[in-house]
Nucleic acid binder design. Structure first.
Lengths: 224, 224
DNA sequence: GTCTATACTGTGATAGAC
DNA sequence: GTCTATCACAGTATAGAC
């Protein structure tokens, strides 16, 4: 028998085509809306006819499903990258993570619609595409516990609050900052409510560093 | 010239037909989903053919628009009725109003979708249908101020938080109580955050009614 | 294997007869 | 006002060219 070749050129080309279709779909979703773009639009953008798309995806929902997986994988990367230099102080860390999630959502409303809302009639992500979303959720819960919180309900409240601000921002002031500007204050209200102690003061002119226990990493901030 | 008759029987019948169509549309929205039901379904339910609907509504969006107006008018009634015997204590009052809004939304997800989400592609309510929504918003702001709060941002945060809980409830636990059970606690967290003083204790076996100041207007409202 | 041509079903919407 | 007939366009299925 022939051994399998080191590379599968056919599979590679197929995968490249899939990604090309998905890239075009993201473009169209931003330009026309997630539900508005048609398969004929999409096919034209990649130089095909609509039925040819069915050689790569079983249905329009299958395209949404692949996009769903891509979006959450992308956000997982962003979140993990953010963990590399997270502020030490718990509240500052939570504020940062909330901001990252908020900005990621607002930067691409169609993507947020796909990731976090049930707005495409009949669409439900497959288990495979849902996996990265679950990993991100688990990551959030880990961080939640790592700052000393334990009540799962408080975590749920936190996610609901941030999602609520995002939805209001996108629905009632798209492109503006009306609700974005309230994010830090809202996170602090939540932190007070769930009993997260205030961060130690870090005023620069005070040289004090009254940190009882010293976490490994200094609190260098990126410009985000 | 002929004077106009006391009643316009034709207009009455027309209006009755419109309402009949809208009632059927609400049924179908609950059964099949807001975006899923078709004009053919709708026409069949009222004993017509689809094109006949266009004698009463200019488009499917026009039907959504009328439903939008109905929904907010209905909620306006519910909210005004609730004001009649609202608890005196500010936090209890806010908790009650939040609960009323929450339950109204969860009781009919399609209706909530229409009222509070941007989920029908291309649909935007007309100014006329939007009017009752604005009245409800203004009513909420009035109550907000009447309990001594003045920072409009805190009002925005409150609405975003409640909407966030509703969305999570409907998206992640439809028919359940996972987020519903967190509503009171969340409202209290918000109330703490915006500086609303705790309600005076009202344990029944204590006969005390230590209400310091009496607000001027009794809560009688017209039924609109 | 990949794409095209063609066609089927279902949608919202319109025209015109009665 | 309601009907029949029809339209344009959507997503989708499949046969067959290359």
């Amino acid at each position: 028998m022939l051994g399998s070749p080191r590379r599968n050129r056919i599979a590679e080309r197929r995968e490249a085509t899939r990604l090309e279709i998905l890239d075009a779909a993201w473009e169209l979703a931003q330009e026309q809306g997630l539900a508005e773009f048609t398969l004929r639009d999409l096919a034209e953008r990649v130089g095909m006819r609509a039925p040819s798309l069915y050689a790569h995806f079983a249905s329009k929902h299958a395209i949404y499903d692949a996009m769903f997986g891509q979006a959450w994988s992308k956000y997982e990367q962003v979140a993990l990258a953010e963990l590399a230099d997270l502020p030490q102080a718990p509240r500052a860390a939570i504020r940062r993570l909330a901001r990252v999630f908020f900005d990621f959502a607002v930067a691409n409303p169609s993507r947020h619609q796909l990731m976090n809302q049930r707005t495409i009639p009949g669409f439900e992500p497959s288990a495979e595409s849902y996996a990265p979303a679950l990993r991100v959720l688990e990551l959030g819960q880990q961080i939640f516990r790592s700052i000393g919180l334990s009540d799962a309900a408080d975590f749920d409240i936190g996610t609901a609050i941030i999602a609520g601000l995002i939805n209001q921002q996108l629905a009632n002031d798209p492109g503006g900052t009306r609700w974005s500007a309230l994010l830090d204050r809202t996170v602090d209200i939540w932190a007070d409510g769930v009993g997260l102690p205030p961060d130690p003061p870090t005023r620069t002119r005070l040289k004090t560093q009254p940190q009882g226990s010293h976490h490994g990493t200094p609190a260098t901030r990126s410009t985000s």
